[in-house]
Amino acid sequence: MIHHILRMKARADVTPEQAEEVLSCLREQGRVIPSVRSFTVGRDYGGDYQWGAVFMIEDLDGYWEYLVHPAHAHTDRVGLPLVERIETYDVSDDEDPEFGPKIAELHRRRYEQDPELAALVFALPQFAGHGAA
């Protein structure tokens, strides 16, 4: 099982309506992407981030499905331009020592296949984690 976790801090000029749209997009991802087994989207407590999300995904095939699903692409295009800082990371019980590099490779492949997304990611002021380009 993979717990894909993201934490976000919005730019200072983001309106409450824009923030709610991003959160709605994240919730929609959880509802419509078949490989997502469960999810939580909401306020981030205990740090300098405002929102967070956790998506539980069965395996790397499901992770790829999650990454390239149109609902995820839509969230990226709505949300990334509004973000000042984002951090993504993954927690898994898979014992393969190459598991982390395999996840990083999926992200790299996604950016290669979607130059528009890659441009959005490269434009972020701060991005850390597997999804960072």
Rank of each mutant, 00 (worst) to 15 (best):
P34V: 09
V32M: 05
W64V: 15
I33Q: 01
R31T: 10
F39N: 03
H72S: 04
L60T: 15
E58T: 12
E28F: 04
I33H: 01
P34H: 12
G42I: 08
E20W: 00
Y49S: 06
V22P: 01
A19H: 00
E21S: 05
V32S: 08
E21N: 03
V54D: 07
G46W: 07
I33T: 11
W51V: 11
L26D: 09
S38W: 09
E21A: 11
D48I: 09
R37A: 13
S38F: 02
F39C: 01
V41C: 03
C25F: 06
P70S: 08
L23S: 09
S24H: 11
P70I: 09
V68A: 06
E28M: 03
S35E: 11
H72P: 03
V68K: 06
E20L: 01
A73G: 05
Q50T: 14
E28N: 12
H69A: 10
E21P: 00
Q50L: 08
L23W: 07
L23H: 05
A53C: 11
P70G: 07
L26P: 01
I33G: 02
G52L: 11
E65Y: 13
E20H: 00
G62V: 10
W51R: 06
F39L: 03
G46V: 12
Q50E: 15
E65C: 12
Y63A: 05
S35A: 15
A19L: 05
A71P: 04
G52R: 06
D48A: 13
R31Y: 05
G46Q: 12
A19F: 02
Q50Y: 07
S35M: 07
P70N: 04
L26W: 12
P34A: 12
G30K: 00
E65G: 11
M56P: 01
Y66V: 10
S35N: 06
E21C: 00
P70F: 07
L60E: 15
Y66K: 04
P70K: 03
P34G: 10
E20R: 05
H69D: 15
A73T: 14
Y49N: 04
V32I: 13
I57E: 02
E28V: 06
E58A: 12
V36H: 02
V36C: 08
G47P: 04
P70T: 09
F39Q: 04
E58D: 14
G30M: 03
L23M: 14
T40C: 02
D59N: 15
W51H: 12
G46E: 13
Y63W: 14
R31D: 14
F39H: 13
A53P: 03
R31A: 14
R31E: 15
D59E: 14
S24Y: 05
D48E: 15
V22H: 01
G46K: 09
A73S: 11
E58F: 04
Q29H: 01
L67E: 09
A53S: 13
G42D: 06
F39D: 05
D48G: 10
S35I: 08
E58N: 06
Y45E: 15
S24R: 13
E21Q: 13
A53H: 03
W64M: 12
W64K: 13
P34K: 10
D61L: 11
I33W: 03
E58I: 04
V68Y: 06
L26I: 13
P34D: 14
G46M: 10
H69R: 00
C25I: 03
I33P: 02
W51K: 03
L23F: 05
